[in-house]
C-alpha cells in the first residue's frame, strides 16, 4: 500500500526544498480591456490594441505578483470567449501542474472557429496550421513515450525498467486534477471548455454554485481530466468564511489550482487575498 501512497496526494511527495507552487493565475477577458480594439473578422486584437493589452496585462501581473510574492511565470493573460492566447495559458498550466506532461497532447479550441470570423481568414488559418503541423518533425512510428523507454533500456536493468514502466503507467492512469476558482462570473466554465476542448454547460446568469462540482471528462486528445469547479469567492464576508475550509480541502488534493481573474476589472484585493491563502495551503 505504501508504494501506491507515493502517487497521491502529490503535496506529500515533494520535500520542502523542491516544493513548487501548483498555481496558475489566468487573466481572462483581455478582449474587453481596450474598447473597440478587437478585429472580429480575424478574431484577434488590432495591432495597436495588442500592444496595449500586453502593456496593461504586464501592469496587472506585476501588481498581483509583487503583492502576493509569487513569480510572474504563474500568471498568463488570455480570453476564453475569443479563444485568444489559449496555448500560452495551456503551457503555463503544463509547466506548473503536478505531472503536467499528462496534458501535453491537449489541443485548445481554435481561435478561428468562432462566429463572425471571415471565411477566407478561417480557411487561411486552418491551412497554415496544417502546413506547420506537417512541417514539424514527423514521428516515424511509436510515440514519444516509446522512444523514452527505448532510450532507458540502454541504461537501466530490465527489472528496474519494468518497475519504472509500471509506476509510469499507474501515474498516467490517474487523471490530472484541476481546481478552478475565481469570483462569480469570471468565466471559469468557459475557460475550462476552451482550454481542454470539452463541452460543459455554463451556468445561467445569476445562479452561482455553492458546492464544489467535480467532473471527470475524456480529453479529445486522449486520457482524462478531472476538474473541480469551486464556488466563487468575494461575494460576501460570510460566504468566504464558510467556504474557506472547503477550498483548502479541495485544493490540497489537486494537481493544480487555476485561479481566474478578469483583466478588465480594477479591484484585485479579493484575488490577492485568495492567492495568499492558496500559496500557504499549497506549499
Amino acid at each position: 500500500m505504501k508504494f501506491f501512497d507515493r502517487f497521491r496526494p502529490p503535496r506529500d511527495r515533494l520535500s520542502p526544498g523542491e516544493s513548487q507552487l501548483r498555481l496558475v493565475v489566468g487573466l481572462n477577458r483581455v478582449d474587453e480591456v481596450i474598447p473597440g480594439g478587437w478585429n472580429s473578422a480575424i478574431n484577434l486584437p488590432t495591432d495597436d490594441a495588442a500592444v496595449q493589452i500586453d502593456r496593461k496585462c504586464a501592469d496587472i501581473k506585476r501588481l498581483i505578483a509583487s503583492g502576493c510574492g509569487i513569480s510572474e511565470t504563474h500568471i498568463e493573460h488570455y480570453s476564453a470567449l475569443k479563444r485568444y492566447r489559449l496555448e500560452n495559458l495551456l503551457n503555463c498550466v503544463i509547466r506548473n501542474c503536478y505531472a503536467g506532461f499528462k496534458l501535453s497532447d491537449v489541443q485548445p479550441k481554435h481561435f478561428e472557429d468562432v462566429d463572425g470570423v471571415n471565411p477566407d481568414a478561417r480557411k487561411f488559418t486552418k491551412e497554415e496550421r496544417r502546413r506547420r503541423l506537417e512541417k514539424s518533425a514527423p514521428r516515424v512510428g511509436g510515440s514519444a513515450r516509446d522512444e523514452v523507454f527505448a532510450d532507458l533500456s540502454k541504461v537501466v536493468s530490465v527489472g528496474d525498467l519494468r518497475l519504472i514502466e509500471q509506476r509510469f503507467n499507474q501515474e498516467m492512469e490517474r487523471p490530472p486534477t484541476v481546481a478552478v476558482i475565481g469570483q462569480a462570473g469570471v468565466g471559469k466554465t468557459t475557460t475550462v471548455n476552451a482550454l481542454f476542448s470539452v463541452e460543459w454547460k455554463t451556468s445561467a446568469i445569476g445562479v452561482g454554485t455553492h458546492v464544489p462540482q467535480g467532473r471527470t471528462v475524456a480529453l479529445p486528445s486522449g486520457g482524462q481530466i478531472s476538474v473541480t469547479d469551486l464556488p466563487g469567492y468575494g461575494r460576501s464576508i460570510k460566504e468566504d468564511e464558510t467556504y474557506e475550509r472547503m477550498y483548502h480541502d479541495v485544493m490540497t488534493d489537486c494537481d493544480l489550482v487555476l485561479l481566474i481573474v478578469q483583466a478588465d476589472r480594477g479591484d484585485f484585493a479579493d484575488d490577492q487575498e485568495m492567492i495568499l491563502k492558496i500559496k500557504e495551503w499549497m506549499s
Partner: peptide
Amino acid sequence: ADVRAYKKDQQFFL
C-alpha cells in the same frame, strides 16, 4: 450591475 461580489463593499460599510 454586472458584478456579484460584494465582500469589499460590505467591508467598507463595516
